[in-house]
Amino acid sequence: MTSRDQPASPATTSLANRYGGQKRSLSGRTKRIILIAALAAGIAFMAWVSTSNATSSVTFKDIGYSTPDGTLAEVDFEVTKDPAVAAKCAVKALDSKFAVVGWKVLDIGPNSVDTGKDGGRTTVHRVQVRTESPAVSAVVDNCWLPDKQQ
């Protein structure tokens, strides 16, 4: 008795059995929805970045410093902010090894539009910082808008 050989199954069928069927591609509608969602997320992110920087910005610029004696440093600087809001600036005095020898936080209140320049946005300030040893430099470390107390 002889048996007839079974016809060989095509390679694609055996590969599909082993590895699974062919993957379906995304439909045009699904691709469109993904593209619209990505664009909406990008626009929302750009809006958030542009509004967060515009609403809470305080900048400062060191003008100069002096050290009248071994226990005092004076710092002159400009602050640019919205005239209607208050700000705080941290000023530090440094010794020859860049160690902090004096530190002070200055409160800068709201000001009128005719104070300073640029419509009241930029004002000049001078602060005296007591030092524990002679300072060779004094700078503004940072300025920020304080959180509103309720």
Rank of each mutant, 00 (worst) to 15 (best):
T12G: 09
I33M: 10
G102E: 00
T131E: 10
G42H: 04
D95E: 03
G102W: 09
A73I: 06
A16R: 15
V105G: 05
V127E: 12
G20I: 00
N142E: 09
T80N: 11
F98A: 13
I36M: 09
V100L: 06
K148S: 08
W103P: 00
S50I: 08
R4Y: 13
P134A: 15
G28H: 05
D147L: 15
G64L: 03
E132M: 09
V100A: 07
T71Y: 12
G119E: 11
L106T: 07
V79K: 04
D5T: 09
E78D: 15
Q150N: 10
K97G: 07
A90N: 11
N53V: 11
V49M: 11
D69W: 02
Q22S: 06
N53L: 15
K92V: 01
S137R: 15
S9M: 14
A90T: 10
S133M: 01
A44P: 00
Q150S: 13
S57V: 11
Q22T: 04
S25G: 08
K88G: 00
K61M: 00
P7D: 07
S9P: 12
R4G: 00
R121K: 14
P83L: 04
Y65F: 15
D82H: 06
L15F: 12
N142P: 01
R24P: 04
V140L: 04
T123M: 06
G21H: 03
V100C: 04
A11K: 13
R29I: 15
P146L: 13
A84F: 05
C89Q: 03
W144L: 04
W103C: 00
K104E: 08
S57I: 12
A86E: 05
P68E: 14
A16M: 06
K117P: 00
V127Q: 11
N142K: 14
T55E: 01
K97A: 15
L106K: 06
M1R: 08
A38M: 11
T13L: 13
K104T: 06
T2A: 12
D5W: 12
T30I: 12
G21K: 04
R29S: 15
K61I: 00
G28A: 14
V127R: 04
M46G: 05
T12S: 13
L94R: 09
S50T: 12
M46R: 07
S25D: 04
V79C: 08
T123R: 12
K97Q: 12
V129A: 01
D107R: 13
A84R: 14
G120V: 03
S56P: 01
Q22H: 02
D114L: 05
G42Y: 03
G119T: 09
A54Y: 02
V91I: 13
T55N: 10
I108S: 04
K148N: 05
S14F: 03
L35G: 06
A8G: 03
A37C: 13
S9W: 14
T131G: 05
K88I: 00
L35A: 11
P110I: 01
S27V: 08
V136P: 02
Q22K: 08
